[in-house]
Simulated scan of single mutants.
Amino acid sequence: MSSEQSDPELSETSQQINDLFDSAELSKAIETEEFKQFLDYIPIAIVVSKFFRGDQRICYANKAFETLFGQDTKDCAGKGWSILAGFKDENDSNVTLESAMLKGGEEFLGTFRAERPRPLIVEAFSGLIQNEDGTENYRIAALIDITDRARAEREEYARQIRDKDILLRELQHRVKNNLQLIVALIRLEARNERRGEKVNLQTLAGRIESLHLLYQALSNDAAGDEIDLGHYLSQIAAAVMNTCAVDGIRLDQKMDYAPVSVNTALSVGLVVNELLTNSFKYAFDGRGQGVIMIECLRQSDDRYRVVIADDGVGLPEGVTWPVPGKIGALIVQTLRENAKTDFNIETAPGRGVRVTMNVDRRAGEQNPV
């Protein structure tokens, strides 16, 4: 789904933009208005370069980059990573963001500062996209503006999270790994498009928004090593309602305070986003009204029940969800592997759909985000 407030954030949150860019037809998508529109949904500065004649050349920068750097993204096209040479590592002034990007790899590069007309401090992450033979093809930079957080404040923040090993790992990995998850979703969409299925950028943007909201929660000054799942799911529901709502369809919510790990929140949130979107789009086909219900209720101190249900038309006879090979299947697999959460769906033609997940508060702590 999103997104940040000076935050180590969004997560972007495996290998999916890979396939998107590695495909001969889809690599051209970056030149289309539709694809640019999609990239502009991402609320952090994204820059993409392509390996050309022995060098990396910028082939795209999104609107967030334009806003952050105050320059027309068209002026960057065809240039090298020298556009970032003015940024120096806060801990080693001999290292520039340009040199860090050229070094390659997929990792957190560090915190960089440029004086420019006004001081600008960014946290930089990079991702390398390779061809099938392992040679370099594309390189992605994600730049997060943390200027408004004073250095002393950031150092104190870092000191606090060093005392919490789980949170430290989350802070180091969440942006890269969540970006990788978005990449994986795009890759699967790209495969579907090559099979003749239309890619729904609005739905994909909704998934990014779920990550955006998680990033915001993690950036909250009061955030510890857990996220309130009830509040997070209510934000996702509001976002889906804002995008998909139609007259006559009501959304009912019941939310308890339900602290969980970041891994669990991310996995459950993506499933909930998918189910709510599907309900709004398909559950009431041919009907003028209906009810969608979402609840997150405490069963015990460490156990919660999440339910998403509608009183719509239900799945057609013989149809199951998620459909193997589709994005929904990838998202449910992530839920089972990362959050160790069970997933039960009940449906019948004309009797709606009801999905129940039993969430363990501690389940996602073992796998760093």
Rank of each mutant, 00 (worst) to 15 (best):
L211S: 01
S267C: 01
Q172Y: 10
L266S: 03
A223C: 15
K281T: 02
R195T: 14
E4P: 01
R354G: 07
I129S: 08
R113N: 13
L276V: 05
F280L: 07
L330F: 15
T73I: 09
F87M: 02
E193L: 15
R191K: 14
F112T: 02
R187H: 14
N358F: 03
F65W: 05
V175I: 06
D40L: 11
T13D: 08
V355N: 05
M1K: 09
K340T: 05
V199G: 07
E25T: 12
A152T: 11
E155P: 10
S14T: 15
L97Y: 11
H212A: 09
L213F: 09
D285C: 07
F21R: 15
T243Y: 07
R149F: 00
A24Q: 15
T73F: 06
N177H: 06
K340H: 06
K36I: 02
Q15D: 12
I42P: 12
H231Q: 13
Q160C: 08
S27Y: 10
I46K: 08
R250V: 01
L10H: 08
K50Q: 09
H173D: 13
R303P: 00
T147M: 04
R303H: 09
I30F: 12
D72F: 03
E123S: 06
I58G: 00
V369R: 04
E115G: 13
N263D: 04
S2Y: 07
P117D: 12
D302F: 13
E107C: 13
T264V: 00
Q56E: 07
G248N: 11
A237I: 03
A45E: 00
A217R: 10
Q172K: 10
T320D: 01
N358D: 05
E12Q: 08
I140Y: 03
E197T: 09
R361V: 07
I30P: 08
A239W: 04
I227A: 02
I146T: 08
E90F: 11
H212P: 00
S267M: 05
E317P: 05
V369F: 13
E25I: 15
E295D: 14
R207A: 10
T135N: 04
